[in-house]
Design a protein around this nucleic acid. Structure first.
Lengths: 225, 225
DNA sequence: GGAATGAAGTGTACGACGTACGCCTCTTCG
DNA sequence: CGAAGAGGCGTACGTCGTACACTTCATTCC
């Protein structure tokens, strides 16, 4: 057993039971070993999580070299997104990290490299990377997306009557939300439920930003310091 | 003692010691009461956190009525931002919520209302709200901003020699990051440290998005469904 | 060949944590 | 006055991360 095996087991275990249910004890059990044995390969739980994030980041495709910056960024981000979708816990794990680790720095560096190679000034490259924010990692901050949390199972689905009443209630309290919800295809049954196409929303915002970047770039934008 | 007092105490305690250090036991102690007493006013810890988030959301200014949508949104978002800056733990707390609560729904509803009143179709309003994502709450997903975590104190600050060596090391491994870091004013001493003006970055991205929204709106953009 | 070394795994134990469950002590009201 | 219910208390259980001291056991060096 070595660090690699521990991290690998942790990743697949987190895939199965979620990051909150992942404990040192549970992981040790999975590896057929006593809990304290893990500490020979991992400094503490924080270090374990750091390592897990590193593993995920390394799953992201390297940047494409044969295209313009805009396409390269776009592809890279979408690759990151698909990695994060293979491991639903990863968003939360990434957000909880406090110190950058080598793989993460490397990722950010190559990201910066794409912009610089595309002719961006370091100044502009800096700001656009901030603007991308979490989107650089393939996620937006979606509030209340139960998908990340396994215990957000679909509840028993109330009777049609109760559902109609709930709807009326919502419409009275939150008319604008209901207006918007009505305008979106509701494959799902609930009013508040996610009838949204996450991928579409993600690309919508991403492209909006990328186009904005392109305009600033063309205009030779610079921060007035 | 009542729910209100409990929530209020929880909020100020979290302001002081951070959200991770906030335990039911610690909170009870602060209120001069035995831990189990809290459970008469709060269903469980999740409920406590829900309530705390509600309190914070209610601190956000109501929308301005005498301006265009763009200004109204901008002001509201910046108001949310300042609320979240008064309570550093709030971002993490918000992100950890799983079910929307009334104050949160109300906030989102009034947000939607601004777009709709500004002439946005429900379709476009829907997508732009997704695009704002966490920015609607006044934060971007800043990775590794130790500010949220009190234990990320400035470390002893290595000797100039060691610092130069670290710098050379960074430059070798992460040339692009260093290039960018060099181009930004480094009030701070560390290479990786935050020499960034968070407020500027936030508004940069916000305005980029708002301008993008405006263009889509003018062009009568609609999702091709 | 035998002792020293060090890495890998074990066992026990401690101090947190959230909270179930039952009890007590008031206030309120008929 | 007596019943009821609300608010606070005490104890206890199971879980967590991990400190610390121990046993193995393979490798290395004389």
């Amino acid at each position: 057993m070595n660090r690699e095996r521990v991290l690998e087991a942790a990743v697949t275990l987190a895939d199965e039971i979620g990051i909150d249910a992942l404990s040192m004890r549970r992981l040790a059990q999975e590896l057929g070993v006593v809990p304290m044995a893990l500490y020979k390969h991992v400094a503490d739980k924080e270090d374990l999580l750091d390592g897990m994030v590193e593993d995920i980041v390394r799953e992201i495709d390297p940047p494409a070299l044969d295209t313009g910056w805009q396409d390269a960024i776009r592809r890279r981000v979408l690759s990151a997104r698909s990695a994060l979708q293979r491991h639903r816990w990863a968003r939360q794990a990434i957000e909880s990290r406090i110190k950058p680790t080598p793989a993460v720095l490397e990722y950010q560096d190559s990201f910066a490299g794409i912009f610089l190679a595309g002719g961006f000034t370091p100044d502009l490259a800096h700001h656009v990377m901030h603007a991308l924010g979490g989107r650089m990692w393939g996620f937006t901050q979606e509030l209340f997306d139960g998908s990340a949390n396994p215990k957000a199972d679909a509840q028993p689905l109330a009777s049609p009557d109760a559902q109609a009443e709930l709807f009326a209630h919502m419409a009275a309290l939150y008319p604008n939300i209901v207006t918007i919800a009505r305008a979106t295809p509701h494959d799902n049954d609930s009013v508040v439920g996610r009838g949204c196409d996450d991928q579409f929303e993600f690309e919508f915002a991403l492209d909006l930003l990328l186009d904005g970047f392109e305009q600033l770039h063309r205009r030779g934008w610079t921060s007035a310091r």
